[in-house]
Design a protein around this nucleic acid. Structure first.
Length: 334
DNA sequence: CGACTTTGACCAGCGC
DNA sequence: GCGCTGGTCAAAGTCG
């Protein structure tokens, strides 16, 4: 395993990926929360990272990973509403059309898909289930292909076995990507992953790694790649939601992965954001949910809350409100 | 020996 | 139709 020095992790962003730039495969929307880095770290025409007015909420990375946060929550997290007065930009993975311009405080939807498609499990479930089914069928079809190759395929495979014929474009699992700044590519998130592939990324010197949750019946996958524009940034894209609990008890170890710290409140502005980043250089150690890698963070890194002088309201998931509260206090003092 | 990683090959989807 | 690229498979290798 890689060396788990994640001390420099301090940033975490979340967005929903349109599917990695695979041309045309982006039929689901992207939720984007932005990053302080203001640039797409990937070579892929994913989304335009923009500052987003993030409505603080108790959403954490771990929540997502553990499936306790549904995409509806994600959507709500980003205050997504089609009727929202916020600026939306729509980016299609294939066409990359960005209809939104948008500066700060922007929510994006990406892809031709309707944002509602990311919503609640209900709607996702259909697509997810479908995706799952297709995934399985895809695997089987792949096996069929293999078998065909090995067994001198009877027509059953491939052509014959495609009777399912995709009704439409293959819907994929909604994805959520997290940007972290880390020295290590594969960040500990409490789950166990098996690497099943690695590909060179176009226009990037850094390869993209493909991982699959090792838990049986769990189809969650993740891709990990490093930004070529900012090599210190690791982009982890999760696809699907775990149907099991994390092997590591994250919650009990003060390791919830917060998504919010890097997100900016409209009232805060970028400065607050930067301030936050500067003040919380180790926040993401907590965010990492690194309960398994005992080798990693120095103890002092676990004192983030104190370092930040943030009242510990309990769970990290409650960090944001205190931040805002503090911000308000500062404003009041001024 | 099992779990995991590496890596080359293959396939699907898309743009041209 | 062809080429490019992302995604996946699976055999071989590695590690504990």
């Amino acid at each position: 395993m890689a060396d788990h020095r994640t001390r420099d992790l301090y940033n975490l962003n979340i967005y929903q990926d349109d599917h990695s730039g695979i041309s045309g495969a982006s039929n689901f929307p992207i939720l984007t929360a932005t990053s302080p880095f203001n640039q797409i770290p990937s070579s892929e025409p994913l989304v335009e990272y923009q500052q987003h007015a993030f409505d603080p909420m108790n959403m954490s990375f771990t929540d997502y990973l553990q499936g306790s946060m549904d995409y509806g929550a994600l959507e709500r997290a980003f205050d997504l509403s089609r009727s929202s007065s916020e600026v939306f930009s729509s980016i299609d993975g294939s066409g990359c059309q960005n209809t939104g311009g948008g500066g700060g405080g922007v929510v994006e939807t990406v892809g031709s898909g309707d944002i509602s498609a990311v919503t609640p499990n209900s709607s996702i479930s259909s697509s997810s289930t479908e995706a799952i089914g297709e995934e399985d069928s895809g695997k089987s079809s792949k096996k069929n292909r293999q078998e065909k190759g090995c067994e001198d395929g009877n027509e059953i495979s491939k052509k014959g076995n495609k009777p399912k014929k995709k009704p439409e474009k293959r819907p994929r699992e909604p994805r959520v990507a997290f940007m972290t700044e880390s020295e290590v590519d594969h960040l500990e998130d409490g789950y166990r992953w098996r690497k099943y592939g690695q590909k060179a990324v176009k226009n990037s010197p850094y390869p993209r790694s493909y991982y699959r949750c090792t838990s049986q019946k769990c189809i969650v996958k993740k891709r990990v790649e490093r930004s070529f524009q900012n090599p210190s940034i690791v982009i982890t894209t999760y696809e699907g939601q775990h149907n099991h609990h994390s092997p590591a008890t994250l919650r009990g170890n003060a390791s919830r992965m917060l998504v919010t710290p890097v997100l900016t409140s409209p009232t805060m502005g970028p400065s607050f954001h930067q301030e936050l980043l500067m003040q919380a250089p180790h926040t993401s150690n907590l965010l990492l949910g690194d309960t398994t890698s005992t080798t990693t963070m120095p103890p002092q890194n676990l004192t983030t809350l104190q370092q930040l002088q943030i009242p510990d309201y309990g769970l990290l998931q409650d960090m944001v409100p205190p931040f805002m509260h503090r911000q308000q206090q500062q404003q009041q003092q001024q």
